[in-house]
Simulated scan of single mutants.
Amino acid sequence: MNAKYRNFVLFTLLMVALLIVFEACQQYYYILQFDLVPLSDFTFTELMIGQAYRWLIWLMITLTYFGTIIYRGQSDELFKITRLSTTAIHFVLLITTNVVITAILRIIINDLPMTIESLWDNCVFYFFQKTPIYTLAHGAMVGMLHLVNSNQNLEIEILDLKNKNESEPTDNPQALSIKIGMRNKIIPLSDIVWIEAYDYCVKIHTVSQHAYAMRNSLKALEKRLLSHQFLRVHRKAIVNMNKVSEVTYNSSSYLTLDNHTKVDIAQSRVKSIKTFFN
């Protein structure tokens, strides 16, 4: 796991632990203040456990959701805070999922009848009880990931400049140099089948079926490889057009490569691909 994401996960775990303690204390205060339940009927530990399972559900759903977005290289869609409408949609989906699952578990744990009315009542209860604090917690996570995202993008820009000035001193590169541990792996351009955006890196797919991660961006590689039969066919893919065996044009256009991999074609790139082959 990337060190920055590891720190983010640790921060999230600490935040969840504090929220569990806070809500347990809050619940304990309300019970005492309004004399809701006799003190002999519960312990503070039981209140902590009751809050813990709800927050553990929240944690698992949220980390899975954010992890999937990061793994698919779509973090810019969520973690750029300027895209408020997109971020709001993610918030609604996350909060709704958490509320529904928490409501279902409460019905099961308390051995209540699983009816539409019971589910609705519990969903409404948890929606009004949990939405404000869930929103704040999600906001804190998005803010942290926004900082990680911005930092990673800055590192990539620096690496792009470094690679341009040092790694490939020639304007006509015949190979890519990829640092693996303490050594550099030299991959001839003729051995590259396609290049895939992979979170904050790129993944180089070769004819030997091996894939190598490289700290660079597709945008930088696109400029360097343009004159070597490489073409940007999607925001997430550059293809060695010499390795293309078939092109399919329809509502979901794609390239079939020599190794039978199918690579999606963005509609905005269809014209440039047709021009290339013509």
Rank of each mutant, 00 (worst) to 15 (best):
A175G: 10
A175Q: 15
A175W: 11
L176Y: 10
L176Q: 08
I178D: 10
K179T: 09
K179Q: 14
K179Y: 03
I180M: 08
G181N: 14
G181K: 12
G181Q: 08
G181F: 09
M182W: 11
R183L: 12
R183S: 15
R183I: 10
I187F: 10
I187L: 13
I187W: 11
P188R: 12
L189H: 09
S190I: 09
V193F: 08
W194G: 10
I195C: 06
I195D: 06
A197M: 01
A197P: 01
Y198H: 08
Y198Q: 04
Y198D: 13
Y200L: 03
Y200K: 00
Y200D: 08
Y200M: 01
C201T: 04
V202W: 00
V202M: 01
I204E: 02
I204P: 01
H205R: 07
T206Q: 08
T206I: 06
T206E: 11
V207C: 11
V207H: 13
V207T: 15
Q209N: 15
H210Y: 15
H210G: 03
H210V: 12
A213I: 08
M214V: 04
M214N: 01
N216D: 07
S217K: 00
L218E: 09
L218A: 10
K219Q: 11
A220W: 01
A220L: 00
L221W: 02
L221H: 03
E222V: 02
K223I: 05
K223V: 06
K223F: 02
R224K: 13
R224D: 05
H228I: 01
F230N: 06
F230D: 04
F230Y: 06
L231T: 07
V233M: 08
H234T: 10
K236R: 14
A237W: 00
A237H: 08
I238H: 07
I238G: 12
V239T: 12
V239E: 13
M241I: 05
M241D: 11
N242K: 07
N242T: 10
N242D: 15
K243T: 10
K243E: 14
V244A: 12
V244F: 09
S245C: 09
S245E: 11
S245D: 11
E246W: 03
E246V: 02
T248V: 14
T248P: 04
Y249Q: 12
Y249K: 13
Y249L: 14
N250V: 01
N250I: 02
S251L: 07
S252W: 02
S252I: 02
S253G: 14
Y254I: 02
Y254V: 00
Y254P: 03
L255P: 07
L255T: 04
T256M: 01
T256D: 00
D258P: 00
D258Q: 07
D258K: 02
N259V: 06
H260L: 04
H260V: 01
K262G: 00
K262N: 08
V263A: 11
D264V: 06
D264Q: 14
I265W: 02
I265A: 06
I265C: 05
I265P: 03
A266L: 01
Q267P: 03
S268D: 05
S268L: 02
S268E: 06
R269A: 11
